[in-house]
């Protein structure tokens, strides 16, 4: 493990996860399909997870990895609930375009 990290270098992990995170952010901002927004959020989440694991190895500290498991579990639950909501929205409105979801307008 240490070898891989040494060979590739921690900074590359950081770059990768920043790139992944930015992809996620732009996905959230520019896509209108709710499922894709959802997927973008997952990418952001995983970017952070990756960073966690990388730093965990770098610092020789298992806490980060424990946290990754924790956040994966939460993410799974979130996906389950989120997808269920999307299914319900699709059934009601026939579309999951977020621009159509304006019932919260004040």
């Amino acid at each position: 493990m240490t070898n891989i990290l040494n060979e590739i270098g921690i900074e590359n992990y950081i770059f990768l996860s920043v790139i992944l995170f930015c992809i996620g952010v732009f996905g959230v901002l520019y896509r209108r399909n709710a499922i894709i927004v959802f997927m973008s959020i997952e990418i952001m989440l995983n970017a952070v997870n990756l960073l966690f694991v990388a730093f965990s190895t770098y610092h020789q500290d298992a806490q980060g990895q424990v946290f990754v498991f924790f956040s994966m579990a939460v993410a799974a639950a979130e996906v389950a609930v989120g997808l269920a909501i999307l299914v319900s929205i699709f059934r009601n409105l026939g579309s999951i375009d977020i621009n159509n979801l304006k019932n919260l307008k004040g």
Binding site: I98, N99, K102, L104
Partner: peptide, 13 residues
């Protein structure tokens, strides 16, 4: 109240 447009895209932004 006017900030509350209801557009999720705007909220996310």
């Amino acid at each position: 109240k006017k900030l509350q447009t209801g557009s999720i895209g705007f909220y996310l932004f």
